[in-house]
Amino acid sequence: MNDTIETKDQAAGMKQGHVLDLKLPIGWLLGAYGVLLTVYGLMTEKEMYAISFGINVNLIWGILMLAIGGGFLLTAWLKKGKAGK
C-alpha cells in the first residue's frame, strides 16, 4: 500500500515533468529534410526522374516537408512567446 501513496505524491509533483517540447525536434528534423531535398531537387538533372514520370519529386516533397517542419517550429515558438509573457 505504501508505494501506491508514494507514487501519487510523485505524480502530483511531476506534472510539469517532461517539458521538452516535441514540436521542436520534429520541426527541425522535417525542416532540415525539406531544405536538403529542395536543394538536391534543384541541383539534379531531369533524367534522374524518369522513374517518377519526369516529376521532380525531390523538389516538390522537399518544399512540402519544409512547410510542415516550419509549421511545427512556428507553433512551438508562438507557444513559447505566449508562455514568456
Binding site: 510523485q10 511531476m14 517532461h18 521538452l20
Partner: peptide, 19 residues
C-alpha cells in the same frame, strides 16, 4: 535531452505520467 528528467522510477518507466 531527456536524461535530466529521469529522476524517479515513474519518470523512467511511465514518463512521469506527464504527456
Amino acid at each position: 535531452a531527456l536524461k535530466k528528467y529521469m529522476k524517479t522510477g515513474e519518470d523512467f518507466f511511465l514518463s512521469g505520467r506527464s504527456l
